[in-house]
């Protein structure tokens, strides 16, 4: 299946604004992001914490709808989905 990754801010700097991933049916959000991190240490450092879970401050959306809570990593993606990843910025 094909999943589109839409990246914002720092993530966009690392992987570009839009990527498409060819993933196995039933791949969860965590799997898609691990796939991206396999090719980029910078992405892995920015997206994951030391325990290998998606950093808690990273905002995730599937087809424009925010996903949150503990089960967000295990949410299954479907063909044609758009997974958006946004790291809030902190400076002022």
């Amino acid at each position: 299946m094909i999943v589109r990754i839409k990246a914002f801010a720092r993530f966009r700097e690392i992987i570009g604004s839009e990527n498409t991933l060819d993933l196995d049916e039933g791949t969860p959000v965590l799997g898609a992001l691990k796939n991206l991190s396999a090719g980029s240490k910078d992405f892995r450092d920015a997206c994951f914490d030391r325990e290998g879970t998606i950093a808690s401050h990273v905002v995730l959306m599937i087809n424009g709808k925010r996903i949150s809570g503990r089960d967000r990593e295990s949410m299954v993606l479907h063909d044609g989905d758009e997974l958006a990843i946004f790291p809030p910025v902190a400076g002022g």
Partner: peptide, 10 residues
């Protein structure tokens, strides 16, 4: 609310 980093802002 506003916040910035590099060339990015929200």
């Amino acid at each position: 609310h506003g916040a910035i980093r590099g060339f990015d802002g929200q």
